[in-house]
Design a protein around this nucleic acid. Structure first.
Lengths: 174, 174
DNA sequence: AAAATACGTCAGCGTTATTGACATAATTTT
DNA sequence: AAAATTATGTCAATAACGCTGACGTATTTT
């Protein structure tokens, strides 16, 4: 942190000096605040599109993720899904149950290991996934507008680079 | 959606045919599922860094956002903050109160309009904001590693393009 | 036969968000 | 000056989504 040049002292209600800062935090230590904020706003707006659709079905973001990944990889097991989402099975339980009960996802016992529940989207489930992806696709298309192939590759690289190393060995959760 | 080539029918427990899809959703309608997922994973991991720090102080993500924006724009009013965060004042209330009570943020009546509460970070507040930004900065640096200036510009453009148009006229919330 | 695994479920809790209603102080309008 | 509006604070109830702990059941592995 820089020196005290940014510090101001005042005595509100005559109750002893309170030290506070009145200068914007901009580039202390070369930190990319623009990117940090840009990421926050971009993600929030990105997620708000499907939110509006989900509301009509009485679902939330958690349902979105489940529908998305089950469509992306039909036949994945509950354990696979937990591993992808990094949540507990108790958190998944309610959401998954609702999606199954509403007919968006169905379960089939694993052919080799019958303890497993392999998850598949129904037609409604596939249509929901597509409907939810559509506005996000449009938003991405708009953001990509006028960009070169190099630029687009850079963005994919960036998104990958921002992620934690995809763990080879699953971490064991409860 | 494409034809029925991806549809499979089975009769689990002999209870009538259930239609489900067993092929991964990949590029239906040219949708960028990689980017959609990349954004999800990237943001989740990006946010997880400060989470670990916040936990120690007993704070959450909501506190993070408040501390961040108050540091970015000292002297902003409660209304400004609500407008930036797009949450209700009731949601902000508890979080802001905790930050004030813990000495991270202080309030001063507006000099022109004394109804306003202008928000400023204390020294602890500034230090917290910097501590929270640090791991995010490192992550961005890592993702940017080996990228050209053009590439980096593309990413900034992308993050801006993904955002909703910054509303000139505030929407009135409760 | 015993242990481990995959999954489901009950019960309780915390954080963050919501809506609605109302209070207070300060400013603006009439 | 009185009335209306504005900025903020607060009480109460509710919901979504995550957590931990504990236990049950079917199936597979040892």
């Amino acid at each position: 942190m820089k020196g005290n040049d940014r510090v101001v002292r005042q005595t509100p209600e005559r109750k002893g000096a309170i030290e506070f800062f009145d200068q914007p935090l901009t580039d202390e230590g070369g930190i990319d605040f623009e990117i940090i904020e840009g990421f926050f706003f971009a993600y929030r707006d990105f997620i708000s599109d499907p939110d509006a659709i989900l509301e009509r079905s009485g679902f939330g973001r958690a349902h979105h993720r489940v529908v998305h990944f089950v469509n992306r990889e039909p036949g994945l097991t509950v354990a696979d899904l937990l591993d992808t989402l990094k949540i507990t099975k108790q958190s998944l339980a309610r959401v998954l149950k609702q999606l199954i009960d509403s007919g968006y996802i169905c379960q089939l016992a694993g052919p080799e290991d019958r303890r497993q529940r392999k998850l598949y989207p129904t037609r409604a489930g596939r249509e929901l996934a597509l409907a939810l992806a559509e506005p996000q696709h449009q938003r991405i298309k708009r953001a990509f507008d006028g960009m070169s192939a190099d630029d687009r590759r850079a963005i994919t690289r960036f998104l990958t680079g921002m992620q934690n190393a995809r763990d080879a060995n699953r971490d064991e959760r409860q």
